[in-house]
Computed example of a mutant assay.
Amino acid sequence: MKIIIPMAGRGTRLRPHTLTVPKPLIPVAGKPIIQRLVEDLSSSYHGSIEEIAYVVGDFGIEVEKELIAIAERLGAKGKLYHQDKALGVGHAIACASDSLNGKCIVAFADTLIKADFKFNDLEDGVIWTQKVEDPSSFGVIKLDMEGYIIDMVEKPATFVSDLAIVGIYYFREGEKLRDALHHIITNNIREKNEYQLTTALAHLKNQGARFRTGQIEEWLDCGTKENILHSNARMLEIHQEQKLIAATALVENSVIIPPCFIGENAVIRNSVIGPHVSVGHHSKVESTIISNSIVQNHAHLKNAVLESSLIGNASRYEGSRYALDLGDFSNFSKR
């Protein structure tokens, strides 16, 4: 099995964090989003993962080395492809055409899942979905009586289905997907001026391919700051039975309200941390109260009261302490 991950987008909704770090490398519960994604896929699949192919933008050599290392730690070969122009997800996947052969999983880089990821790999393809309350913001599918997909509709204005596509796909013959993508690009078949994966899927369906649907327990989107913080909280809850506080972390005169992740060589002093806080490697938190937040690596917080915050790598924030004289019947609010 090969895993193809299109991740060349710049993550503009997460700026300023994505000005220096690609969105898939932002940590969630102590691990980069992309690492959690491939670990979950590889651990849930009953077979072996031979290759993980990333479609990237101009992220720099250090990011590319980290991506290759993530693949190699799972016993797979890492491969890089570059998308020079933002021409849609279908175009991004087509950039990895050399890897589109045999059994393939295509997974979007801003998606985390909680699922028993079992499926029949003899099917032509599988598209994973989850029921949602408001399907108008998602691509959705319709099924026939046998459970095969008969239609895919992007962000329907009227109700079509409540089964939303979560961004994970399986193809038994990756070369057929490669040919379908080549067809839509060669014939300049675009939607909203981009080459879409759903267009290629419709082309495959018209050629006789039959797609099943796979169900997941929980879908965690990581496209915005609020979603990343929610995903961090859920991942901490899901993995709270694991050892989340590094042995090299120093915690002095502090309260840790679980679940929290404390990274290697982090220092927590005179603080209250949690719940749902991840503190990155080599970061220092002093005289601070913080909840529902992510502090990335080599950051330093002092005299802060924070919630629902995302603190970047090597950032420093120092708040102020106040002496307050407040008389009877006073009303004071500081925001």
Rank of each mutant, 00 (worst) to 15 (best):
G263K: 01
I189Y: 03
I256N: 05
I228A: 03
A180L: 05
E191T: 04
A249E: 02
Y195V: 02
S231N: 00
V251N: 02
L197S: 06
I228Y: 02
A180R: 01
L220F: 05
L250W: 12
A247M: 08
C260A: 11
K225I: 15
Q196I: 05
I216D: 07
K176I: 04
G223Y: 04
A180K: 07
I185P: 04
E175L: 12
N188H: 10
E218P: 06
E191D: 08
V251C: 07
E252F: 10
P258A: 12
A247Y: 06
H239D: 14
E175A: 13
N187E: 15
I262N: 05
I189R: 07
T198I: 14
Q196W: 01
T198W: 01
E241D: 13
H230P: 04
E191I: 07
W219F: 15
R212W: 09
H230G: 06
E173L: 10
N206A: 14
M235W: 11
A180W: 03
A180S: 15
A200E: 04
R210L: 14
L177G: 06
G263R: 00
S254T: 08
V267P: 04
N187T: 05
N193Y: 09
F261Y: 15
N227K: 14
E252K: 12
H203E: 12
A202G: 07
K205A: 12
L181M: 09
N193T: 09
N206G: 11
I189P: 07
L250M: 12
A202S: 13
A200K: 02
R190H: 05
L201Y: 01
S254P: 06
T248H: 07
Q240W: 08
H230V: 10
R190T: 13
M235I: 12
E241W: 11
T199Q: 03
G174W: 01
C222A: 10
N253H: 14
T198Y: 05
E194S: 10
H203Y: 15
L197A: 01
H203F: 14
Y195K: 05
A200Y: 03
I256T: 01
S231R: 05
K192E: 14
R234I: 12
T213W: 09
E241K: 10
L229I: 09
E191Y: 00
A209V: 04
Q215G: 07
E173Y: 15
